[in-house]
Each structure stands twice: as structure tokens, then as C-alpha cells.
Design a protein around this nucleic acid. Structure first.
Lengths: 220, 220
DNA sequence: AAATATTTTTAGACTTGTCTAAAAATAAAT
DNA sequence: ATTTATTTTTAGACAAGTCTAAAAATATTT
């Protein structure tokens, strides 16, 4: 059994997420930025992770996860998302309140905890933000994710997820009545700034470009 | 808001527990032993905790918790025990499996988590080992705790708690059918080694002195 | 009260993880 | 192809927490 610290685990997750969006080796600077730290610190950490065989690291060439590193990162994401489901479904937190808790809970170690939690929650396949939850074997379902910005006027979609988990954004969505499962119809798009005119349960709203960009939909 | 590390929190808990059993200042050596570390390390930590005003520490004279330190220690015990209830009641773990998880979960920080968990669990007053759970104000009910070793032959009691949370001991109790709420009648005590002959739901057993010492009962 | 034993503290070193500043390597621009 | 700009690494320092060994304080024994 391999021992990892929370700090190491957070770096692994960051590497995983960056290479998910942007395949290929992750550069030190991108990692440092994602971790909110300096390139020097990232380099230090990459050396440690490399010694533990969790990443393949080549000086100046960036880093990729080894199979073991990938397994660990996937498990962390599984834990994070399961805990988020628990916090929302069982403890009654709002979707904008759970990230920081899950960030800590995902590092709790020990046999079987994750699988029991998964069982208890009835094997949810998506977390409260619509992100897919890997199963015990590390496999997950790809979420239907058409961005609102790609719709043509007149098209309708059901919200399946959000790409920004920050409290202000999620609360802004709450105010508009936007939640997972809600139907949105694109009425029109402002030409000069790409903001969207939409209809949500009968009412019309204007969504900023950023908000439009951060909404994932399944087309109806 | 005061920031504390897990290591600091564990020391605070240890100080709390030692002075619970043995009132008065906690000596460095006792603390080091409880923490499984050296007296030198304990001294180092006491300086840090003292700077943070969590303990009143006088060189060579031992240490006591400040009101703030006491509040924090009590809150940690509350969190630990609530998580244990969750793990046993909701996730279906056995009472000997939950300690290590709770040891990690108790350090999760953030507003409201503990109180929501408490609410969700229906404000339990005792954890799976029979230990009282402090409420949000830090108050708790004292558990009826007569030790089996203090009973006279012929007396009966209901198990209300155990004073040893280790897996081997709890599994030993499982084998004998001893759990919270089970009735035990003391039949006889061996003179030379204080082990106890008992009756549990009709059957007779002999409990070692150590086991007898670690069982708390409410007299019938 | 002096000698001995125990406890506690200090001193110095190590690890993990962080930082800033400087050096080295790579990439981009002329 | 050389200069310039950017990225990355190294070097050295710091903090938290640990350790062992030695020094200092307290307690116990004679």
C-alpha cells in the first residue's frame, strides 16, 4: 500500500484535470497556476511524485500520470463527488456549499469507506454539479455536454451540468431558477458579446457569455 | 477564527482525555506516551499550543487546557463520536472498524457540518461504544458507568459502554455476544486473578480481569 | 543534605512543503 | 543564427513537526 499526503493527492488531481481538458504532458507552469503556487514549488512536488512512481516527469518536458497515478487521481475524484452527493442529498447542503468539505473528505483513507458510501447513496452516477462519478473500477459515463453557447436560436436543452463550481456562480444560477434538469430554450444571441437570451419555465432572461459558457445541456 | 492543524488537535484531545481521568495538570511524559512520541516532541508542541493560547503551560509543571482549548477539544470529541455513529448506523460498519476513520473525519473543518450531521443522525447522545456525545454547546450526559469488576456476585447490569476501543477487544466481545444493551449477570469472581464468571442470555462465560475492567454497566 | 534517579527541556538534525531570487534551458523573434 | 523573452529548474531559506542525544531541572533515596 502506497502512502500519499493530501498535498500530493491535490497535485495528482490537478494533473488529471488539466490533461483531461488538454491532452498531453502537463507543463510545470500550468500545474503551478492550477495549484495557486509557484513553478518552483510545483517542480519540487513533481520530483517527489516521480520518486513515488505516480507521475512520469521529464525535466522541461512536462508530466503525465502513470497508471498508478491515474488510478489514484480517479479514486480521489470518485471520493470527492460521492461526498458531495452525501452532503447535498443527506445533509441538505446547497450545491454551492459542498466543494470545500468534499475537498477535505476526499483525503480520508481506509478500506471500504468509499464503496460503502457509494452503496449507501445508491451508486449515483453524477454529482450535484452534474459531473460523472467514477465507479469502483474507475469507469464513468460521459455526461451529455453541449454548451449553451453552441446552441442555435430556437433550440432547447436540459441542464446536465455546470463547469464552474464557485459559490457566486451557483448562487447566480439559483436566482435564475437554473438547476440540473431544468429546461432552457435559447431565444437569441447578442451579436457583439455572445450573451444569450433564454426562456426558463416561461420567463425570459439574459445570460452573460461566461454563464452561457459554463452551462452544459442535453438537447431535447 | 483560529487555525489549528490535525497534529495540534490530536494533542489537545489527548490532554483533554488524560485530565478527564486524572484531574490536574498533564505532565509532558504522560502526554508523550499517550501520543506515542518523545517527550521532546511533546515539549515542542506544548510551546506551539501555548503561543496559540490553547493551553496554559508552565515549564516542568505540566499543562492544562484554556477555555478555548477545552472548547476545541470538546468539539473534536463531538465530531469524532458523531462520525462514528454515522459510520455504524448509516454505512453499516462494525463498532471495531470505525475508530480510524473517525480519527480523520473529526478534523474536517467548516461551518455547520457537525450540526447538520448531528441533525441528520437525530441528535444521538451516545456513540457506538457508549461514549457520550457533547451537544453543540459542549454539554453531555454522564454515562452510567459501574465497572463489572465492582459488582457483587448475583448482581445484574446492562452494558452501557466499553473503555477499550481496539479491534481485538471489540471482536472478542462480539464473539461472546456482548454489545451495548446486553444484560450481564455476575455469577462469581475468581479469587486469585479477579476474572469474572458471568451469564449472558442464558449462557455462562469467564471474562478476563482486563475485559471485566473495560465493561461499563447500568445496574438493574 | 548529598548523591542518585527521573523527568523535562534544549540543541541540532531531518522531512515535507512552501517561498523568493538567481541560473539554466527552451522557445520566439529579429 | 543570434538576441530576446519565456519557462523551468536550482539554490537557499523558512515553518511545522518529528527525532536522538545531551543538558538542566525536579524528585527520590540514602
Amino acid at each position: 500500500m502506497l502512502l500519499t499526503t493530501s498535498a500530493e493527492e491535490n497535485y495528482l488531481k490537478a494533473i488529471f484535470k488539466i490533461s483531461e481538458k488538454d491532452p498531453g504532458p502537463v507543463l510545470t507552469n500550468a500545474l503551478a497556476t492550477a495549484m495557486g503556487t509557484s513553478a518552483a514549488s510545483a517542480t519540487d512536488m513533481l520530483k517527489r511524485l516521480s520518486e513515488k512512481q505516480l507521475v512520469a516527469y521529464e525535466k522541461y518536458r512536462g508530466v503525465t500520470l502513470t497508471p498508478e497515478g491515474n488510478r489514484l487521481a480517479t479514486s480521489l475524484i470518485r471520493k470527492h463527488r460521492l461526498w458531495e452527493v452525501f452532503l447535498v442529498e443527506k445533509l441538505g447542503f446547497a450545491w454551492d456549499e459542498v466543494h470545500d468539505f468534499a475537498e477535505q473528505l476526499e483525503h480520508v483513507q481506509g478500506d471500504n469507506l468509499t464503496d460503502r458510501l457509494d452503496e449507501y447513496l445508491n451508486h449515483p452516477r453524477f454529482d450535484p454539479h452534474g459531473d460523472p462519478i467514477p465507479d469502483a473500477q474507475g469507469r464513468w459515463i460521459r455526461r451529455p455536454q453541449v454548451r449553451l453557447t453552441t446552441l442555435s436560436p430556437g433550440q432547447k436543452g436540459i441542464v446536465t451540468g455546470v463547469d464552474d463550481h464557485t459559490s457566486p456562480f451557483l448562487q447566480y444560477l439559483d436566482e435564475l431558477g437554473i438547476a440540473l434538469g431544468v429546461a432552457i430554450e435559447l431565444l437569441d444571441r447578442t451579436a457583439y458579446d455572445q450573451s444569450s437570451k433564454v426562456r426558463i419555465s416561461g420567463k425570459e432572461y439574459t445570460l452573460s457569455e461566461k454563464a452561457s459558457q459554463n452551462l452544459f445541456l442535453r438537447l431535447e
